[in-house]
Design a protein around this nucleic acid. Structure first.
Lengths: 357, 357
DNA sequence: TTGTAGGCGTTATCAT
DNA sequence: ATGATAACGCCTACAA
């Protein structure tokens, strides 16, 4: 019998006429049989329950360990109705902002025993819907969404799923209770204010047409800085890309006609494209024109010239969002709107205004 | 009775003295009761089984849809023993190479009805071990690993888990059967060869001490290019960082003593740091010194000067890895080692050697 | 301290 | 074409 119980998990060749490999994972009952106890006892021992004899527990744990037994989280999830799983949706992981947030989320989730399902939406509403449905079927305990462009779409789904949701830099913050947001207004106001102090008066704003709320807030901060210095905000000095370098180049080109001496970009990716376009036109940064970004992505400090930008503590924001979600999942209340401070980092892409004006 | 069956899923306030909200998700039995059929019939209808009357099926689907019913993938996974789930481990998502691969994997997985668990290892073997254990408990159908520095560590786990594993740019390819790798040797040989053609003879190599196999192959390609031009490879012209800008700066500094006129970097992140250091020393790229990278990350084309580099089709590699895993999971055989071509992209960071030599 | 008996929400295997 | 019934692997009463 002992012979029979051993199975052939160790990779022994299957018996003749038995083409079926993968002898099936061990279950709690297998461990129970080997340890000569009932399976509930094994369950208790593995959860370090005080209701089981210390020696027995030790023996069971040893056996389970030697056998390489891993309790099935799916079976457990079925009975406990909690999967210790969350769904994380991003527009695309390939975006450096998103991947930093994902990193912070993942670390925090793991530290608390949660696994995370990652899904790209590609900013496609239909895909985003499917992704959230998949999460619903997976019975995730909570959902985290980064930079969604279709936030409102979640409302009906949320109602059905009955799981908490937290958004990071959502574009429709009004619709949701829980979110982690950067101080868009203050951050961009600081960047524009910095340029004003350097003597610039023809300052442009290169935004993100898909940034909605974030873009609106940053633009408002930009306006506030100019207005408090009594500088009129001219519409020829405002343009929009899509948050990526390619579109930023086109938008920058259009902006050039208004001859700005400085430009505030919606984010670092936009600054990357804008700067590239400026060079193509023979303009030197910052001598001829100053440029600021937003995010402080890893490459900002290594650009030529190093980029003056507004730092977002992206990883930390991911962590904060996950911590908020953890609270909600355990039934506690959580601060609805978490607002994170942005920090202006002055580098070499901005300089005192010179000639050319 | 019908009254009673309705439950209060629609968000009706809970009855007095019933503090317990979240009325519990609908199950297949609820749908069955409403449709006045048995639950297996519902199951069949929802799977579009031909074994069920077309009209009945239609009615069931309509009811399920209106009720917002979502079948539990966890219950299904328990009985079918397949979760349609894979585990994806990366050293860190914050690395742009990794996030591109993740993107390709995720898209492909989703298109085939798989959800992906993402986990960072932070290049910490202990954490990586825990992560894989979590995957085992989650009963993932397969595992994908990117740029692992601890590949060998998987062997024993793999034996126990009995799930297929595919590695992307693994550092210990010998140990595993299935992997997707870039043509490291040929790629770097092309980059170095390009510099040789431009007349350079004092060419340095700035590698990644944690790149193991990848670094070894790229270095070999570098050597091959020089040797085929009868240029001796001097050890003072070889240094190693860790694949990131910071360490690259330090390594570059040390390399400067040997006065190279060109430098091949292990990857674009390394090139970022190396270039930054060169500027700090007043050297102009490419006038005084040429620089090449590897990867062709999104920012490479936007640097000043635009970076000459070796392109890896990262997303495509993620897709190939996932497709290989899909084959393995469905029991088919798959090409063990998939080798992807690298492409030299010549931009402006390299130029014909001038004076200063 | 331990064992017995459900049940979690599906799919699979039989009947009918 | 449909319905009973039995798993799947675990946890949680409750009983002993």
């Amino acid at each position: 019998m002992a012979e029979k119980d051993r199975g052939n998990a160790a990779g022994v060749a299957p018996a003749q006429g038995a083409p079926r490999r993968s002898p099936r994972q061990l279950s709690i009952k297998d461990i129970a049989r080997i340890a000569r106890v009932s399976h509930p006892t094994v369950s208790r021992a593995l959860q370090n329950s005080p209701l089981v004899n210390a020696k027995t527990a030790e023996k069971i744990r040893r056996i389970a360990d030697e056998a390489g037994y891993r309790a099935s989280a799916v079976a457990r999830g079925l009975v406990t109705r909690r999967t210790r799983t969350i769904g994380l949706v991003v527009t695309t992981v390939a975006d450096p902002f998103a991947s930093e947030v994902v990193c912070g989320v993942e670390q925090t989730a793991n530290d608390h025993g949660y696994s995370v399902f990652l899904a790209d939406s590609n900013a496609d509403p239909e895909r985003e819907r499917k992704v959230v449905q998949a999460f619903a079927e997976r019975r995730v305990d909570g959902i985290l969404v980064t930079s969604s462009r279709v936030g409102a779409l979640y409302l009906p789904m949320l109602a059905q799923m009955q799981v908490p949701i937290v958004l990071v830099n959502d574009q429709y913050p009004g619709a949701f209770v829980h979110s982690v947001m950067i101080a868009n207004f203050e951050g961009m106001r600081a960047a524009a204010g910095h340029l004003v102090e350097l003597g610039h008066r023809r300052i442009a704003y290169l935004g993100d047409q898909f940034g909605y709320q974030s873009d609106a807030e940053r633009l408002a901060g930009f306006r506030a800085a100019l207005e408090s210095a009594s500088i009129p905000v001219r519409s020829q000095l405002i343009a929009h890309g899509d948050g990526k370098p390619e579109a930023a180049m086109a938008a920058m080109k259009a902006l050039l006609a208004a001859r700005p001496t400085a430009i505030c970009c919606y984010n670092d990716m936009t600054a990357l494209g804008a700067t590239h376009q400026l060079r193509a036109h023979g303009l030197r940064v910052p001598k001829d024109i100053s440029v600021t970004g937003f995010d402080d992505l890893f490459f900002a400090a290594y650009l030529e010239p190093p980029l003056t930008t507004v730092r977002q503590p992206m990883r930390r924001m991911g962590q904060l969002a996950m911590e908020s979600l953890l609270r909600l999942m355990s039934g506690e209340e959580s601060v609805p709107q978490i607002r994170v401070d942005a920090e202006l980092v002055v580098r070499a892409s901005t300089a005192r205004m010179s000639g050319r004006g």
